[in-house]
Structure formats: C-alpha cells, structure tokens
C-alpha cells in the first residue's frame, strides 16, 4: 500500500527472469526477481561470478531484455521496445560506466565525453560546453585535450563517468567500475559516484565485487545463482563480504 508522498521508483522490476542457451545448455542466468530502486539511491549488486548480477544490470540499463516479467525504468516499460527504440531510450535516460573505461583512443577527453551528445540536437558549441562541465564535475577540467593513452586508469574512469553524466540521465549504471583500478583510485571513483548521488541526486546502480563499495552505497543486494538473496541469506552473504575485507568496511559509513 502506497501513500501520496511515496516516491515513484526509478527502477521497478516485477518477476524478471533471463535464461541463455549456450551450446546444448540452457543457463538460467536470472530467476524471477522483483525489486524497486528509488530515485537518488546508490545501489550495489554483489555476488560471485555467474550470480546473474551483470545480467540484471544489462536488463535494467536496457542493453538486454528479460524473457519474462515486467520492467519499468525511468518511466518507460522496456519490455515492448525494440533494439533501436532501446538504443534511443538508453541515450536519453541511462549513463553507462564500464570496468575497462572503454574510451575511444583517437578522441580527446572532451570529445569522448561529448560522444553521447552527438545523438542530441545540440550544436557543437553547446556539446563542447556540456562536455567541459561534466569533466569539471569529475575533476578533470585540466585534462580536456588529453587523449586516453596519456591518462592514468583513474583519470580514464573519471572521463568515462563524465561521459555517463553528460546527458544528465535519470540513471547511472556502473559495471565493476573499480575492477581495473588500484585501491586508491578505486576509493576515489566510489567517492566520486557517491558525490554525484549527494550533489546531483543521481540514482546509481552498480555491480561490484569490491567490498570497499559497502562504505559508499545506500543499499546492497546480493545475488547467487540467479537468485536475489533475502533475509538471513542476504545477511550471511553481506557478513562474508565484510569478513573477506578484513572487517574494514561497514554499512552506513559513507559520507
């Protein structure tokens, strides 16, 4: 039962499931899952490899489509959209951050960030202005003309985050954003994502193995073998992660 002041979820998942056919095997990557993600929340999906967290992230970001269930993201029912409509929807509503940065090596930081704006009707000057603003937000306004090859891993990931926010999307989706970074840069990136949530009210959904993430996120969901863990199972999974990290992390410790 909801009241009038209950915020509308940015992500509403109802019975979403996904399976793949690989060779002769039918792999159940995601068993029916239901959950809501409210606006302005920083959410992490955690779990071992093959747990289905990346599949879920792909479905939430409109990269993949569920076999069953209903999916409402940023006010759009994604189930009915075809490949091209999904691409258009992603361009408007989702900012994506990947583990390996995936910048275009022949474009400067500014041009990399401006890439998603090519899909808008903005003129070149406005695209440039917005790209520079996004780079300023991630603290890289002194690296506008640098090419990815001349930037450190942390800086490249910051450029990727600037590219993800440049269109002012409803949702930022990050797949292992710290997976290819050293400890210090990983903390910086998590801190930056947290800052985007705090300062701009962004909703961030992240998949990670990194136990440090627990200090920065609002909510953690644990997946295992395609199942969203709940109750005691989720508690145990969380405890195991905290233990693996040597007890240096804890929920609710974020700035």
């Amino acid at each position: 039962m909801s009241t009038d002041d209950t915020p509308i979820p940015v992500v509403a998942i109802r019975g979403v499931a996904r399976h793949y056919v690989r060779a002769a095997d039918d792999v159940q990557a995601l068993r029916p899952i239901s959950l809501d993600i409210l606006p302005g929340r920083f959410v992490a999906f955690m779990g071992p490899s093959g747990s289905g967290k990346s599949t879920l992230l792909n479905i939430i970001s409109g990269i993949d489509r569920p076999d069953e269930g209903a999916l409402l993201v940023a006010g759009e029912m994604l189930n009915d959209l075809d490949e091209d409509e999904l691409a258009e929807w992603r361009a408007r509503h989702v900012g994506l951050v990947f583990q390996f940065f995936n910048l275009i090596p022949v474009l400067s930081a500014r041009d990399n960030v401006a890439l998603p704006l090519l899909l808008t009707k903005l003129d070149r000057a406005e695209r440039t202005r917005r790209a520079e603003t996004a780079l300023r937000v991630v603290g890289l306004d002194h690296r506008l003309d640098h090419y990815p090859g001349t930037l450190s891993g942390g800086e490249q990931q910051r450029v990727a985050i600037a590219r993800a926010i440049v269109t002012d999307p409803d949702l930022i989706v990050a797949d292992e954003p710290t997976g290819d970074l050293d400890a210090r840069n990983a903390e910086d990136i998590l801190s930056l994502l947290r800052q985007l949530k705090n300062d701009f009210g962004k909703t961030i959904v992240m998949v990670t193995h990194d136990p440090r993430a627990l200090r920065f996120v609002d909510d953690v969901y644990h997946l295992d073998k395609g199942i969203l863990l709940e109750g005691e199972d989720a508690e145990r999974a969380g405890a195991a992660i905290r233990m693996a990290a040597g007890g240096h992390v804890g929920g609710g410790g974020h700035p």
């Binding site: 490949e83 691409a87 258009e88 361009a91 408007r92 989702v94 994506l96 890439l115 998603p116 899909l119």
Partner: peptide, 8 residues
C-alpha cells in the same frame, strides 16, 4: 560501447 551508450 557506442551501441551501449545509445548509438542505434
């Protein structure tokens, strides 16, 4: 990546 960020 271009496809993922919305290039049709």
């Amino acid at each position: 990546i271009l496809k993922a960020i919305g290039f049709g």
